[in-house]
Structures are given as structure tokens and as C-alpha cells.
Design a protein around this nucleic acid. Structure first.
Length: 224
DNA sequence: ATATCGATTATCT
DNA sequence: GATAATCGATATG
């Protein structure tokens, strides 16, 4: 029930496309991370697209810097940034070298290594309020939100920025296990001021591990 | 269930 | 010096 069967790792061609299409098609894919304490994995249920041009919310909007260089590099590499003095956020670069674009990973449905991820998040299995580890209310605390996702998977800029998602035996991989997403919802992106309003947030409709709350999760526009 | 607010630092103006 | 692709705690309905 908890094992991952036959899988296909995503290749450069998958990422070498418009971030909106990549963001949409990443839903349902597995993000796999290896640590000294075992294999961690989750299914992507929420993403956001960040475009290179005309998207003032994107870190790449003002041009290439040391911080955002990965977004301008080849497709399929991890861009990790630190935000609000507290949190890391994980993205994958899209589009060919020289053209900026990326997808932010906002939420995972936990699949494997759940106890390790919970521990990395500081969640306590022995705590009375957390004692039912099968409950969605507990599992939702693991990786529902971009900062939580990074903490659960031991992702920091120092460890992960610039790393490929496409190497066969890497400790950071994106794979297709054949899971089919039924329906996708689209809303504006969360937590941004500039270029707000564009429908560039994608999530699996009805999935309980999507971040935010009802006020964010009413789908508006259809998109690509 | 929803709203508000403080934490804390890399990056850019 | 201001800002930020967030989170968790607290307060209130």
C-alpha cells in the first residue's frame, strides 16, 4: 500500500515548456527525496507557475542575479529561495537556457517516509492531539504549503539550489507513477502583490492536502 | 471558521 | 531601509 511501483523519471523535455503547462502536468507526479533517514515521497497536489516576462511576481522579473540564476538556466533544475526570514520554497526551472520561468511546489500529499517527514516538521507522534497519525488533519500539517513542504523534505537553499531533478539515482527526483489526476482547479496565486489576479495556481480539485482555505480554493478561470 | 499579527533575514533600492 | 512566492500562535465569532 505504501510502496512505489514502476515509475518513469521526468526528463528535460517535460520541463522545457511554458511554466503554465508544466505546473498543470506536474499535478499527480511524485516528488522523491532521499535522506540519511530514508526515502521521503509525496504526490504534488498544488503548484504555481511563474513566468519570465510580464510577470512582476516572478523573481526573474527584473533580470538575472546571483539569487535567481537557476531560473535563467536549463530546464529541470531546483530553484530554492529563502523567504520571510523563516522559510524555504522549492521550484523547478522551465523553458530553455536563457529564458526564465519556473514552477513553485506548494503542497504534497504524503506518500512515503511519513514518520520522518513529520519528525522533520517538528510534529510529535506522541503528542495526544497528534496521536491519530492516519487522520488527514495530522497528515495535512506535513507538507500543505511551500514552506512546510521544504521543511518536511529537508530542502534548504544550501543543500538543494541548482540540483537537477532528472538524475537517475539522485536524492531529489520527480517521477510519473501512472497516477491520473481527475480534475484540476485554477485560481490566482497566493501571497503575492504584484501581478496578482492571473490564474496561475493549479491544484487537484477536492484534494484535502491543498494549502490555504476555502477562500482561496474556489476555482475561477479555466486556463491552458 | 476566519482574522490579525509577529518572527526573522536575504535581497534589492 | 523596505520588502517578501510563509507559518504558527492567538483572538474572536
Amino acid at each position: 500500500m505504501n510502496s512505489i511501483g514502476r515509475v518513469t523519471q521526468l526528463k528535460a523535455d517535460f520541463f522545457n515548456r511554458d511554466p503554465r503547462r508544466v505546473a498543470r502536468e506536474l499535478l499527480g507526479k511524485l516528488l522523491i527525496r532521499k535522506t540519511s533517514r530514508g526515502v521521503l515521497a509525496g504526490r504534488l497536489v498544488e503548484t504555481e507557475a511563474y513566468l519570465g516576462q510580464g510577470d512582476d511576481a516572478a523573481h526573474s522579473a527584473a533580470g538575472k542575479t546571483a539569487r535567481n540564476a537557476v531560473l535563467f538556466g536549463p530546464p529541470g533544475y531546483a530553484y530554492v529561495y529563502f523567504i520571510y526570514g523563516n522559510h524555504y520554497c522549492l521550484n523547478v526551472s522551465c523553458l530553455p537556457e536563457g529564458v526564465a520561468g519556473g514552477v513553485l511546489f506548494r503542497a504534497l500529499e504524503p506518500v512515503a517516509g511519513i514518520d520522518q517527514m513529520a519528525a522533520a516538521r517538528g510534529l510529535d507522534f506522541a503528542n495526544e492531539s497528534d496521536v491519530d497519525t492516519q487522520k488527514i488533519s495530522f497528515l495535512k500539517k506535513i507538507a500543505s504549503g511551500p514552506g512546510r513542504l521544504c521543511e518536511a523534505l529537508n530542502v534548504t537553499r544550501e543543500r538543494v539550489n541548482g540540483k537537477s531533478f532528472m538524475s537517475p539515482r539522485s536524492d531529489l527526483r520527480l517521477v510519473d507513477d501512472g497516477f491520473h489526476v481527475r480534475r484540476i482547479s485554477v485560481t490566482p496565486r497566493i501571497g503575492i502583490i504584484k501581478s496578482a489576479g492571473y490564474p496561475l495556481r493549479y491544484f487537484v480539485a477536492g484534494n484535502p492536502f491543498v494549502s490555504g482555505n476555502s477562500r482561496f480554493n474556489n476555482a475561477t478561470s479555466p486556463s491552458i
